[in-house]
């Protein structure tokens, strides 16, 4: 629903990156192409390019995160931008400062980009509607809604292994209900033209009407894994056991945990993905997580290149401008 209108400028270039939904296939491919160029930067002796020199990027994390924040920080530094890390826990807002006040304070410090993580769906979208016109907003995860940079690094990883999206069957397994990663992946996969996207989970973890996002729903793991090329496991949060959503981690693992035996149901060359951090023995067996079928660590390193590409593009720069390193 996060429409083109706000994510793109009047020339159709990326202005904010809030959701994978509503963006064209060519734009998503362009992000992946740029990320390929940036990936090579990471392999150089000097890892920096001066694309965003003089720009100030604020990491606005209203929800704690180390991994995502760190990769954004690294991506910004490799683009030669100045980066400001702000962990705005609820305490700042409980002092009476509204979200708009916080944003305007940061604008007064001449920031050029906000990387936002927030516990509420739609927060990045709201911030994008509030900021001054020269500021770009990148969504680093909002509630259950979207985590588009994670989805794009997953697409990057898939493309490196499988080349052609249109021949792929993909299964996403686990807590779809609460997962912003799953929603962003579903939109990205469908836009990139995969043959089929499946989700696999018990009824309690599948949100109503999810079929309308373009997925087939499976409640049986074995049936859902039949013939798939990609198995994307989701992290299961411990608090799901406290509500009435699941009885126990053990039972979940019995029914939906990815073991070598289960993986054998998928295609012989199927790869295993996970946004991390993984819960060994809950959603994935160690023997699978550490096997050569697992591309989990590659996902992490691709995260930096993909985020560099997105940051540069929203600032009107591209990998074509890389030129010499510093």
């Amino acid at each position: 629903m996060t429409g083109n209108s706000i994510q793109l400028d009047k020339n159709g270039n990326l202005k904010h990156f809030l959701s994978t939904e509503g963006l064209s296939q060519s734009l998503l491919q362009k992000i992946l192409d740029h990320a390929e160029s940036f990936a090579s930067v990471g392999e150089r002796h000097v890892k920096k390019v001066p694309l965003l020199r003089g720009k100030t990027i604020a990491n606005l994390f209203f929800e704690p995160s180390t991994r995502t924040r760190t990769t954004f920080e690294l991506a910004a530094k490799r683009l030669s931008a100045d980066i400001l890390n702000l962990n705005i826990s609820t305490s700042a807002t409980s002092k009476g400062e509204t979200l708009s006040d916080t944003l305007h304070t940061l604008e007064a410090m001449h920031c050029d980009m906000f990387v936002v993580r927030h516990a509420n769906s739609g927060a990045a979208h709201y911030i994008a509607t509030q900021v001054a016109p020269h500021i770009s907003v990148i969504n680093a995860g909002d509630g259950r809604h979207a985590h588009p940079t994670q989805a794009m690094l997953d697409m990057f990883t898939i493309r490196r292994h499988k080349k052609d999206f249109t021949k792929l069957k993909v299964a996403i397994v686990g807590d779809i209900l609460h997962s912003r990663v799953a929603r962003s992946e579903i939109h990205a996969l469908n836009t990139l033209g995969v043959l089929e996207t499946r989700i696999i989970a018990p009824h309690t973890l599948i949100p109503k009407g999810v079929e309308e996002l373009g997925v087939h729903v499976y409640h049986d793991m074995d049936a859902g894994l039949e013939g798939v090329d990609i198995v994307m496991m989701l992290r299961l949060q411990k608090e799901r056991m406290r509500g009435a959503l699941l009885p126990s981690e053990q039972e979940f693992f019995q029914r939906y945990g990815l073991t070598s035996e289960r993986l054998a149901i998928a295609k012989p060359d199927a790869i295993v993905m996970h946004p991390g951090p993984i819960n060994r023995g809950v959603e994935i067996d160690s023997s699978v997580a550490d096997s050569e079928r697992s591309v989990i660590l590659q996902q992490v390193s691709h995260g930096i290149a993909v985020r560099m590409a997105i940051m540069a593009m929203t600032m009107g720069r591209s990998a074509d401008d890389i030129g010499e390193t510093e």
Partner: peptide, 15 residues
């Protein structure tokens, strides 16, 4: 409202 819209927007749903 619990349905395709709340699912797409990731909003906590009221059945």
């Amino acid at each position: 409202h619990e349905g395709a819209i709340s699912t797409r927007l990731g909003l906590p749903a009221i059945p």
